[in-house]
Nucleic acid binder design. Structure first.
Lengths: 168, 168
DNA sequence: TAACATGGTTCGGTAGTTGAACCGGACCGT
DNA sequence: ACGGTCCGGTTCAACTACCGAACCATGTTA
């Protein structure tokens, strides 16, 4: 648990959040859970982190009620975001927008649409047509990817609702 | 530089962003720059991190054009967010909202208002009155704090425009 | 001119991360 | 029923980053 609980951090909401999700790898795990990955091995292969770290991070997130274990296919357990965890969507969207704008060529940027009306979301995740900011569960993502053999990237080439389990 | 540039991270905007701002302390530094802190010693005292780490993080952020050195009072250099850095505001706001909702008592939560019209911003940083999402420079913050001697916390008790230098 | 603040650098000890190896149980094909 | 493979981890040594304290040159203030 590298992020110590100093007195300084006590009264700042940002610092409190970072104590939970600010460790290395944690936000990438949460990103993948938004994308619909749910199994330990899928997270491990997609993110490419040491298994001990994945185990540690998942335990911490479960302890903080950001992630929960849910029954999956064939009596196998899976990991999913809780409602509390799903509320981190604006953070992930913000990082995605910023990274897209400054580090990703336009044709490779992911596109987000409002699953209810089909309109494309603006840069802060709002639906210009409905005038609301949809929750993650009502957002559909489509991530272009060229010439990769990565099955996870391939699965996200077709539009996919966030949080919905991603079957490969 | 702990966050390695793996092939996996190449095509994901979130991973790219986290390579820049995902290291320990970095987002707290950026938070303080939004609040108006600008001097090395202020950052150091407020955040409470080892000076070598602060030096390292600032160098990295300058290299990535997130932060720049600007002339301050008395021929002394200060650190400030660039326009690219200021675009990280939705990320910070997202972390702040999530932390407030889950870890901070309502009376201690920071309040954000649209500096142009004075209306209180909604949870995604939009102005319900103007119908726009103001940039950080048009947001005014007011952070309650009770019974602390911390001069930085005290300075933020009165409304203060983000990015504006904070004089103690 | 002495004292102090600033903006760092240096250094040894410690804590977190990494990558590889390993392992029991579940599942699968035959 | 059997062997092989995948799954979900655990263990361990080597490495790297971080921490906290000490130090220091350069202003700045009294």
């Amino acid at each position: 648990m590298p992020l110590g609980t100093d007195y300084v951090r006590q009264n700042c909401a940002i610092a409190r959040s970072l104590e939970i999700v600010g460790e290395r790898w944690t936000l990438l795990i949460i990103r993948d859970l938004f994308y619909g990955l749910r199994r330990y091995s899928d997270l491990r292969k997609h993110i490419g982190l040491p298994p001990a770290v994945l185990t540690d991070r998942l335990a911490r997130l479960i302890e903080e009620d950001v992630v929960e274990r849910v029954p999956g296919r064939g009596a196998r357990e899976e990991y999913a975001l809780t409602t509390k965890g799903a509320k981190l969507w604006p953070v992930l969207n913000g990082l995605s927008q910023w990274g897209n704008e400054h580090y990703v060529e336009p044709e490779s940027r992911s596109r987000l649409t409002h699953a209810v009306c089909g309109a494309q979301l603006d840069e802060v995740g709002g639906c210009p047509q409905c005038g609301v900011t949809p929750a993650a569960a009502d957002v559909e993502i489509q991530k272009p990817s060229f010439g990769t053999a990565d099955p996870y990237a391939q699965a996200l080439r077709t539009p996919h609702r966030l949080l919905e389990p991603l079957r490969l």
